[in-house]
Write a protein that binds this DNA or RNA. Sequence first.
DNA 1: CTGAAAGCGCTTACAG
DNA 2: CTGAAAGCGCTTACAG
Lengths: 345, 345
Amino acid sequence: MPHNHRPSGPRYGNRPTMKDVAARAGVGLKTVSRVVNGEPGVTPETEKRVQEAIEALGFRRNDSARVLRKGRTATVGLVLEDLADPFYGPLNRAVEEVARAHGALLINGSSAQDPDRERELALALCARRVDGLIVIPAGNDHRYLEPEMRAGVATVFVDRPAGGIDADVVLSDNYGGARGGVAHLVAGGHRRVGFIGDHPRIHTATERLRGYRAAMAEAGLAVAESWVSLGSTEPGRVAAAARSMLAGREPVTAVFAGNNRVTVTVVRVLASLQRPVALVGFDDFELADLLRPGVTVVAQDPAALGRVATDRLFQRLSGTNLPPTRIELPTRLVPRGSGELPPAD
Amino acid sequence: MPHNHRPSGPRYGNRPTMKDVAARAGVGLKTVSRVVNGEPGVTPETEKRVQEAIEALGFRRNDSARVLRKGRTATVGLVLEDLADPFYGPLNRAVEEVARAHGALLINGSSAQDPDRERELALALCARRVDGLIVIPAGNDHRYLEPEMRAGVATVFVDRPAGGIDADVVLSDNYGGARGGVAHLVAGGHRRVGFIGDHPRIHTATERLRGYRAAMAEAGLAVAESWVSLGSTEPGRVAAAARSMLAGREPVTAVFAGNNRVTVTVVRVLASLQRPVALVGFDDFELADLLRPGVTVVAQDPAALGRVATDRLFQRLSGTNLPPTRIELPTRLVPRGSGELPPAD
DNA sequence: CTGAAAGCGCTTACAG
DNA sequence: CTGAAAGCGCTTACAG
């Protein structure tokens, strides 16, 4: 004997379902489904009756149920560092636009640079069965995503490669960009150039440092270790590092800033100085051209990173079975004044 | 006779389900459910068997199915103007953090200031059955959301009130902020103050204009209509408007900029000028203090807007049945130099 | 402590 | 052109 059940769950507020629409229109469930989905094979007359019932009841298809049956959620997940960071705004928007072109919505969230939070968020997105996942890594070990990827979650990493697994990655030419930026300072006559960058566990930080060292070496310039400082991008830390390499017996005459947060802090420090110090920063930022002097930067294209990564994601979703690829986008040196200041020697 | 069906759908790649885990562990479906959800009433021994099966199969609960049965998706939808606009970054992040504290994920998207796209996106989110919706209006008519709200979608508007319906709204004191900013310029000796704002169909634009007019009137100053310009925030339009009111027989000696995009363009125009012109902008922005002169602004707190709105949303979701409320957050005048320049007369 | 049955709201695969 | 049945992968409401 079946139990004498009665519907009890919240039923999403108290929404009408296709069943309700069918009852009101006096048709079968499948006919409602046809009308709702614009499938052919319904008399104009029947369709009208169904449409009226839909209007009268305020029916809206529950995509959450649809998804369960169809097996694809038409949703893309994006894990980035911080939704509030202006660097990720254009990337975020680019991912949205490509997803939208494919009829997909975007669920995103911040890792806050915390590997555990990255993992937690990425796995929550997998539990929601996003079709694809775009991850800007906070951690260095992404083996936790292996089962998900094997189960069919298309995954593309952006800005930094995945750790411990082989996966698509889209990033900027960090090494080449930094090398070019430092070479630009050297070409301007600087022989003592400082480098202030992000924490060494972050891939982009070490790549840019590598570019710095390469440019110095190629110019036959020695690097005093007091000119190099990696660590948190917290303003206090960066300001102290800048002041330290600008003081002493062999002060730097130019600074290469490893990312936009560092650059901004260095600009503040330099503004408080007597002598002019040259500056080139990695990453462009709004108003860089309005400062005096304008800030010379090695610009990435964050929107392109997002666009290329999401294109790749949908390629994977459509069944392309290429080996994991590393796509590197070029950077661009934008001279605006600060990088063209001569050494104050 | 039942049809001889065979599972055929994509089954989310080829993921194991609770049924698979149950079979492997030799237990019932419900026992797996208990273990997965940490419910009591399972022998340590049984639990271990289930855990092993979970590991072996790489099982991850399908929250998408769970949601269908539970009736709540633990998802919040956010419709804003542009994910790439730095103004919305902190708001976006604040919404995320509050949602996260309630165990909910965030689906967001850009309206691109297009009312149709706002509607399309908001309704797509409703179809996904987000528990709540936060909308920064692009359009002026939100009656399309009435059935959804009646059906139980908690909805809070931010930055601008909803059109045509009665709903919660959280916004800044646009009128008071603008009035205070203009009064500040007047107190500095200015008698001819210009106003450049966003399109008049945008609520914040007209409110700020109202504040401007009030401050001028209170100072007994007449407003020449050539000093007022509302329209797109596209740089070309704004620059032309600025140049126009700075030329002529009765040029303004100060400009009040209606939002951050306008402010930035005005700064560029003023930088190309011979004489100093005072400027106060609505909205704070990064590096405003680093420009010369620093840019005086009427600052909103975008993160607070997001936080207060999302708190309200979850209050609604927990059953509070208060009438729709308008919550107005104060603004703050931040003097940095540009607003303290005396008239060049 | 454990599990079989029914159901969440749709779509799929059929049959008429 | 139309619709009844089964099923997507879970949870609910029971019974043992």
